[in-house]
Design a protein around this nucleic acid. Structure first.
Lengths: 354, 354
DNA sequence: TGTGGTTGCACCATCGATTGTGCAAGCGAG
DNA sequence: CTCGCTTGCACAATCGATGGTGCAACCACA
């Protein structure tokens, strides 16, 4: 598995071969050589030599000395949904632009696991951390604060650090209006035909419930209670909720709002056990975007958070280091049924296929 | 953004407060203290102190000295498909089990970018690298070999290092048979009704084409030419291919095989521009699994590679360090239409939702 | 020729952990 | 009381890069 393992070149190798001292070499390769009044000629010689020997700095040594590791952390609940995986993709691109190495970890929605994985990042002295969808953002905050690591919350806000989130309330309101409008085309609709499934007791879910009810009130003039069901972010619990509803009413609601694509997977599981008739006249809204989800056999309206903008704002916050926590809200996008949006995949080089 | 940034404790802090030397502290915390004949009592004292001060080792320093960083790399083309994102998820779990910190990067199917990002990993002296779906595995191999980094190919084989891949040929054969059998239930089918879209000139695609043709030959007794279209791994190119086909024949093929979920997104884009009638009687196979894809308005058979097993075998290969490259093949799973498989999401703690 | 200022670089401590080596104290045997 | 062995640990070099400080050489000017 090895072939020609000449050890990697260090500044000392460059120092020997160039006749300059190690500190000179370091200064040249850092770009700080002007400040140290190294002659242009010496700088040129060393740069050329570095190129020739394919020198790249040992980041551990650099980090140890300068206590900046060049690592940028992102904490996700899971990778395995389109929302979070495109967040990882976008994060990587933006981190690299700032010549940081992105390190993405998942906390599995377990407050303890979240703290553990963040501590493992802290051990590598990451320079900054994005906390996305943490169950306990403030617990993670404390770990970061103790280690002096700048951090922001993305998508779920925390009390103790700045946050960039989607406008969940307005998004949910728009989504709810869209599915009700659509469902009404199929005949009159009562408030009791409009439900919400999924989510838990977190900020995003609460806001979405408010938006959901706001839309219902606007349209029907009155809100009905008992029209939402918290199932956590779990496919199996969500599937159970649908089964229960179905057992009780002999059908699904005409029109319903699903809190996230993870909960949507619960609907898929329910679908697996029932015949296509069951879904003949439903209209669904999902607060997340998944291209395949958009083309299911019934109308699916989706909300796509603006991940790129959220992360950009996040990096801005890190750069400016506010003393008091800020909260930034980003408008998400309403996506009508049967829509295949472009995404990170389109930036691939593979367009010129053979 | 900061509050009580007492610097993190080091072995020197522990040394001072315990009265022992730094080297003793190090030995104790490493578990090598028996070998160094440190008394159990001293060990206990230091361990307790470490716990109290919440000591965690500075990984940069450890890495610098011992030249083992504790980082495990995974190179992906992209995050943003269910296949690769669940690979990232599974990789994280398996790396952590070995107390490594997973670092996942994406090479965007660009040979140069692949090498660049791997070099950035090498600068952090990662201990090992999994190369998944690289466009140029052998180029990446050379970077690793030069740095003496153990590595294996996953999913796409390379000549120069060991590889763990899916059985693409048998998988494609099974998938092709499944869609043909299904399509035949809707009436007689000719070989000209069975197409393949997507992929490029890589090992996986070639094998899949062979499997595809093998199945057609088995069933129809003869293969027809011109029944496959390479579009690269690009949604937009694939969409174009479908448009072209549609323009020429006034319809889609009755039955077709799509090389990957990325290409499947090309079909989604095509679908966005056409009415549901267009898809009324097609049967589709996709060499990748996506739960939402499985429930589209037409039958979709899918193949799910066994990611867990592939990664496990990969770690085995790293552990055993074979001199000559090995090739390990793992059977993938055929998934019938309308199937929502369980996945990494189900291992989340969120089952006990409130 | 002496003084003062600039140029161009070298020296060295340092970051925190690891590890080979050395050595004092204690103990038993002779 | 001394020799030799074990026990229990300390010392110091080291990994590679960084950055503060010091200093020789050179130049200009009086």
């Amino acid at each position: 598995m090895s072939e020609n393992e000449h050890r990697k070149a260090t500044i000392y190798d460059l120092s020997m071969k160039s006749g300059a001292s190690a500190s000179t070499v370091s200064a040249v390769l850092n770009g700080t050589w002007q400040k140290r009044r190294i002659s242009a000629e010496t700088a040129r010689r060393i740069t050329a030599l570095a190129e020739e020997l394919k020198y790249t700095a040992n980041q551990q040594a650099r980090a140890l000395r300068s206590s900046r590791s060049g690592l940028a952390g992102l904490l996700l609940p899971v990778y395995d949904t389109r929302f979070f995986s495109s967040m990882a993709q976008t994060f990587e691109a933006q981190a690299r632009q700032r010549s940081l190495l992105p390190v993405v970890v998942s906390g599995r929605r377990d407050p303890e696991e979240e703290r553990r994985v963040v501590e493992s990042l802290v051990a590598y002295s990451i320079d900054s951390l994005f906390i996305a969808g943490a169950t306990d953002p403030d617990g993670v905050h404390r770990v970061c604060a103790a280690a002096g690591i700048p951090h922001v919350n993305i998508d779920l806000p925390g009390e103790l650090a700045s946050s960039v989130i989607s406008d969940n309330r307005q998004g949910a309101r728009a989504l709810t209006k869209a599915i009700i409008d659509h469902a009404r085309q199929g005949g009159p609709l009562s408030p009791d035909d409009v439900y919400m499934f999924g989510g838990r007791d977190d900020h995003a879910s609460r806001e979405r419930v408010i938006g959901f009810h706001a839309a219902k009130t606007e349209i029907f003039g009155t809100a009905s209670g008992g029209d939402t069901e918290n199932t956590g972010y779990s496919p199996s619990m969500t599937a159970l909720a649908f089964e229960r509803f179905y057992a009780r009413h002999g059908r699904l609601p005409r029109c319903f709002f699903i809190n996230s694509s993870i909960n949507f997977e619960g609907l898929l599981r329910f679908m697996g056990g029932h015949d296509e008739q069951t879904f003949a006249d439903i209209v669904v809204g999902c607060f997340d975007y998944d291209p395949f989800g958009s083309f299911l056999p019934f109308p699916v309206y989706m909300i796509r958070p603006d991940i790129t903008k959220m992360l950009e704002r996040g990096f801005d916050l890190l750069d400016h280091e506010n003393a008091t926590p800020h909260l930034i809200t980003i408008e998400p996008q309403l996506v009508p049924p049967r829509t295949a949006l472009k995404g990170p995949l389109d930036e691939l080089r593979d367009k010129d296929a053979r």
